[in-house]
Simulated scan of single mutants.
Amino acid sequence: MPGWKARIGYLSPSVFETPSDWDLILPKGFTIVSSGLNVQAHTEVEFNKAIDALGAGLGVFKAEECDVILMGGITLGTQRGYQAEQEVVARLSRQVGLPVSTAMSATVQALKHLQVKTTVIATAYKESINQAVKKYYDDGGLEVLAIKGLEVARPVDQAKLPDYASYKLGRELFNQHAGVESLLLQGRWRTVAYVEELENDTGVPVISSTAASLWWVLKTLGMNVPIKGYGRLLALQR
Rank of each mutant, 00 (worst) to 15 (best):
A6S: 12
V60L: 10
V195C: 07
L26T: 02
T210P: 01
M71G: 05
C66L: 10
K117V: 10
S182G: 10
K5W: 11
D67H: 09
D157Q: 09
K219H: 12
K112H: 04
A193L: 03
N130G: 14
G57Y: 06
H113N: 08
L58I: 12
K228L: 10
V100W: 04
Q86D: 07
V192N: 03
L234N: 06
T43W: 11
A84M: 14
K62F: 05
T202F: 10
V144A: 07
W215L: 09
V100P: 00
S105V: 02
L150N: 13
S128R: 15
Y82M: 07
E197C: 13
R94F: 07
G3A: 11
I51A: 15
D21F: 02
A211S: 15
A110Y: 12
P19G: 11
Q109S: 15
A235N: 12
Q86R: 13
G140D: 08
L236P: 09
L236Q: 01
G222T: 00
T75H: 13
G9M: 05
A124L: 04
G77C: 05
G9Y: 00
K62T: 14
S209E: 12
K135Q: 10
T210N: 15
T43F: 10
G149D: 12
L142F: 14
S12T: 04
C66Q: 12
G3C: 08
W4V: 14
G81K: 08
S101C: 04
L218Y: 02
G222H: 03
A122T: 06
L54F: 11
D157I: 07
P19A: 13
A178D: 12
A193Y: 14
L173A: 04
V180R: 05
K49T: 14
E44M: 04
F174C: 04
A103C: 10
Q83R: 06
K49F: 13
P99R: 01
D157C: 09
A153M: 13
Y167E: 03
A132G: 09
N200L: 08
G72K: 03
A6K: 05
L98N: 00
S93V: 15
V225R: 02
A165Y: 00
K160N: 06
E64R: 13
V152C: 08
F16V: 06
P162Q: 05
E87D: 00
S12D: 06
W22S: 01
D201H: 07
P19K: 15
T31P: 15
D163N: 08
L76S: 08
V100Y: 01
D23G: 05
N175L: 02
E172C: 09
A193F: 07
D21M: 09
W215I: 14
R91W: 02
A90K: 14
G77L: 06
R80Y: 04
T18M: 01
V206S: 09
S93P: 11
A146W: 00
Y82R: 05
V39P: 00
M223R: 08
A212V: 03
F174L: 01
G59C: 08
T210K: 01
R7V: 12
L218D: 07
L142M: 11
Q79C: 11
D201C: 15
